[in-house]
């Protein structure tokens, strides 16, 4: 909130609520990447589409986590774009799994809007987009 905060050359995105976001994104990275790596390695043929989508989700989560930790305006914009892509992904896959369950013999991270992960996958991008937009507004005030 102080003006000193804005003088840091690469502005932090991990202060305040950002800490919680980084933590939750970190958890999702570990969850999605380890899950898809294991499933792709052991039983890829059973549900190739579902496991590939989980892997994609893991990569997106990884990139957002990295951007949040790195900080700065470019990273903020990149993270914002990825959060929008993530939200679109969750909505698409969530709707898809409800309409066409036969396409998914096994669940993905984003199945049923992330129900298997306490709906964190759908809540996370919404709160992250809010936080990242607010970070820009605060920066504008200070400058």
């Amino acid at each position: 909130m102080t003006s000193g905060e804005a003088e840091v050359s690469r502005r932090r995105l991990t202060s305040g609520p950002g800490t919680l976001l980084v933590w939750l994104y970190g958890v999702m990275v570990v969850g999605a990447v380890s899950r898809s790596a294991y499933q792709i390695a052991t039983e890829f043929d059973r549900a190739a589409l579902a496991y590939s989508l989980s892997a994609v989700a893991g990569v997106v989560y990884g990139f957002i986590t990295y951007s949040l930790v790195r900080g700065g305006e470019t990273a903020r914009k990149a993270a914002l774009a990825c959060c929008v892509a993530e939200l679109v992904g969750v909505l698409t896959v969530g709707t898809w799994t409800l309409i066409e369950p036969s396409a998914f013999p096994d669940a993905t991270v984003w199945s049923d809007f992330g129900m298997g992960y306490v709906f964190i996958p759908i809540l996370l991008p919404v709160s992250a987009i809010y936080w990242l937009r607010r970070s820009r507004a605060r920066n504008g005030d200070a400058a």
Binding site: S15, G16, P17, G18, T19, V22, W23
Partner: peptide
Amino acid sequence: FMSLAERTRWGSVTVAAG
């Protein structure tokens, strides 16, 4: 460790989430 770096209520929220 994250709550060590974030000495506000948000550090507490993070540990609660943990």
